[in-house]
Lab assay of single mutants.
Amino acid sequence: MDLSALRVEEVQNVINAMQKILECPICLELIKEPVSTKCDHIFCKFCMLKLLNQKKGPSQCPLCKNDITKRSLQESTRFSQLVEELLKIICAFQLDTGLEYANSYNFAKKENNSPEHLKDEVSIIQSMGYRNRAKRLLQSEPENPSLQETSLSVQLSNLGTVRTLRTKQRIQPQKTSVYIELGSDSSEDTVNKATYCSVGDQELLQITPQGTRDEISLDSAKKAACEFSETDVTNTEHHQPSNNDLNTTEKRAAERHPEKYQGSSVSNLHVEPCGTNTHASSLQHENSSLLLTKDRMNVEKAEFCNKSKQPGLARSQHNRWAGSKETCNDRRTPSTEKKVDLNADPLCERKEWNKQKLPCSENPRDTEDVPWITLNSSIQKVNEWFSRSDELLGSDDSHDGESESNAKVADVLDVLNEVDEYSGSSEKIDLLASDPHEALICKSERVHSKSVESNIEDKIFGKTYRKKASLPNLSHVTENLIIGAFVTEPQIIQERPLTNKLKRKRRPTSGL
């Protein structure tokens, strides 16, 4: 017993010596996670971090007073192994002897410093981030199933929210409404489509400006004509009531908005009720001829604005009016007729031209339509002016008669200019590109209106002035400009410049 007691005391002394060697000089306990400095002193990692955080910048070693920084600290694995072995020896000594260790306080702390507990403390002390800490805590505590279930439920809930957000973003663009038309193969669909197009076009005519009305009406008319041609002859009974509906809707729209509806009346003529396609083609032919005449008058307007600064050229074209007008009339009417003589009366030419125009518009179905009313009214106005011209010709002399006839021709041009508003800008460009020769010939008609105004002003003063002067240069210039014009009389060319000069002198006297 005595020997055993001596041996136990010796073992205890050895353990105490080893414990003092492996103590931390700051906390005076076994080193936890030993860290060595540049001066080869060993301290606990937790104690050194606490010391360095007390001051900004480098701190001093507690043993040798040298500078220490966080970067200079290094882990010493050898001392950590020695500490672990010492703890194992102490545990074995207690089991063999059955005696508690003399320094129970220190031993209890040593026992608490088992490797499992050290790992837990290291995970908390090290600044490795929240995710690494959570992982280490889960690994160190596998015995708690409640914690695992809560963490898994949190992760699953987070994943569910992310997935639901993604699915919502994908589903939202798919919620856009999609309209699908289910059509049938019955023959009544074509008639319904035609009526739908006509009503939609009328609404567009009321909303859209004048520049786009003609294009819309032309497209709708083409669509309706194609649909009529596709149907068989057996379905004509269905077409006639639908066309009557079209007429009623167009008349109502014309009564409500007459000014807006006139812009599309000329282009919509071939959508009118037709028994066969031949009647629609004839109407299209007549409309094309009318559009040609209207576009020519538009060309004359532009030329008149350009040549208004040259009064000499405008005056020299006075007698070329009849010849150029004959050529335009021959090209406007498709019928083959002989040219009228140069010395014939211009009023007779106008009456013949009106007689040619009237039969074209005397179809029984055309008179029933609303768009032809505008053309009939313009023709009636022309006839009224010609009836007035006959009365004026009986009273005035030959020279005054010529000037009045020219004035009436200008009035006719004004009437025809009203129809110019109905034609589109695209048709003007096509006419100029296809028929430049006709445009040059028809330019002379509009330029002549300037000389007509001068004659009217001469009649106000009650006299006409003449001068025997020749202007050969002007006649040559005008002959080169206009290709299809005829030779003019030299006496009238000489008379016109004198009248304008005298007018300039006598205007201030009349004002006084």
Rank of each mutant, 00 (worst) to 15 (best):
E181K: 05
I31A: 06
I68S: 01
P58M: 11
I31T: 01
V83D: 08
K88A: 13
E121G: 06
T77I: 15
L138H: 13
P58E: 15
L6T: 11
I15R: 00
K168H: 14
L99Y: 03
V11K: 01
N144A: 04
H117T: 11
E75Q: 02
K45T: 13
D189E: 03
T161K: 02
Y105D: 11
I42K: 13
N103Q: 02
P34I: 03
I124C: 15
R163A: 10
Q155Y: 08
Q172G: 05
D185G: 09
E121A: 07
K88G: 10
A134W: 10
L147K: 12
V14T: 00
K135R: 10
K110A: 06
N103R: 11
Q148H: 11
E116Y: 05
S123D: 04
T69I: 04
C44A: 02
M18D: 01
K50P: 13
H41M: 01
G183E: 09
T77V: 12
P173G: 07
Q74G: 07
T77W: 15
N106F: 06
K135G: 10
R136M: 13
V154G: 07
Y130S: 10
K50A: 11
T176A: 06
P173Q: 10
K135T: 11
L182F: 12
A102T: 10
R170P: 09
Q155D: 10
P173M: 13
G183Q: 09
L165D: 06
V122D: 04
T161C: 12
T97R: 03
S80D: 05
T176Q: 06
L159N: 04
M128C: 09
E141S: 09
P58D: 12
N144R: 12
S153Q: 11
L52G: 05
T97H: 00
R136P: 12
V8Q: 10
V83E: 00
G160T: 12
Q174T: 06
K119S: 10
E188H: 10
K135C: 04
G183S: 06
F43G: 11
V191Y: 05
L22V: 03
R170G: 12
F93Y: 01
L99V: 08
K251E: 14
E188L: 09
C27T: 00
L6E: 12
Q172E: 09
Q148D: 05
